[in-house]
Design a protein around this nucleic acid. Structure first.
Lengths: 191, 191
DNA sequence: CGTCTATTTGAATGTACTCAAAAGCGGTGG
DNA sequence: CCACCGCTTTTGAGTACATTCAAATAGACG
């Protein structure tokens, strides 16, 4: 199946799966189409799935008491997203996930993933290795958050992910970097 | 062995290991004593180990171009630490890890961990589940970093980890929260 | 007790924020 | 095709929070 190519390639970067294992894995994938501005995760509902983006883009954000949005994840093709805490603990989500464009995602249920991971060693390896790698990047973001000025954060992000920066609205990027939209505008105007 | 109790309990929270597996796992653990202010990880050297703290405390920090320290991890008993990026990629570390107190740690080499994880399914599960959980907490820290004021960050941290806040120097906590030491002092004095 | 490090306090500065308004952009329908 | 509406971005002015730098005080450790 063509729509599985991306995720299977992703897995293949870490482990090798037999044809049978691939079959078992793809059988738990649910393909979902979502329209721009549609919510896939909402506070109050359990985030049932790990989601992989085949096409499109999604952001995960937190809405604080003052009504301000703070973006935790900006995800495009070949990325995973979920409210991890809600997903792992089967508790109501704290975050929203919203499609930034019309998108196609692959969804896998917690129970199905756990079941497969306990039966297929290499799939467990895949998620372990991939998540460990994600953790190492997470530290980099933390460093950036606590040590850089707004200007540095902005330009570093644009240089690192130019294709994402051009694709998402400025206010989303602002809420991801922890900067006000006005400040981003001013940073850009200073050439 | 008494010194392994902590880490084995930690594992037991996620998976069950047979006696033989426990034996295999503990055989790769190297016990190391480190003195206060000693460095366990330094830029330029590969971070060879995942480190588990049996006793004491350690911080992992980044030293920027201006000579400022930015703390990524403050770890006490029953926590893991490493420069994950360096550890995973066998590249020179970017961070320092420094003992905040005389400490005892258990060190496990990358190759040994990978070897065991590929042979022992439940150990792979353990690291997968544990790291996934760590990721979900990492998102919370990101939200805190980008959305809270210095005052909120400080008090939230103190309420969440009172035992750590009392144990580490104020300037370390400051560099962890992304606040200047002077600001922390002022926040505290405002009762 | 003396030294070195950590914390506090003070004053001045600056970066980024808020609020408000204008301009730009995109999509929709007449 | 143009006019309008809603949303995003820009611009401006004033403000606030946190920083820097410097000095004083407190605390830890040999």
């Amino acid at each position: 199946m063509d729509k599985y190519k991306g995720i299977l390639d992703h897995i293949a970067r870490y482990v090798e799966l037999s044809d049978d294992e691939i079959e078992q894995f793809t059988s738990i994938l649910k393909t979902t189409r979502i329209k721009k501005r549609q919510f896939i995760i909402q506070p109050g509902f359990v985030s049932e799935y790990r989601n992989y983006i085949v096409e499109g883009s999604v952001r995960v954000f937190y809405l604080d008491d003052l009504g301000k949005e703070h973006t935790v994840i900006i995800a495009i093709e070949d990325w995973f997203f979920t409210d991890f805490y809600s997903y792992l603990n089967r508790t109501p989500a704290e975050y929203y996930a919203e499609a930034l464009e019309d998108s196609v995602i692959l969804q896998m249920k917690y129970d199905d993933v756990e079941d497969l991971c306990s039966r297929i060693h290499s799939l467990c390896q895949y998620f372990r290795l991939f998540t460990e790698r994600s953790m190492s990047y997470s530290y980099k973001r933390t460093i950036s958050n606590i040590s850089q000025t707004s200007e540095e954060k902005y330009w570093d992000y644009v240089n690192k992910y130019p294709q994402i920066a051009n694709r998402v609205p400025q206010y989303v990027l602002a809420s991801y970097l922890g900067i006000s939209p006005e400040s981003i505008s001013r940073i850009r105007s200073r050439t």
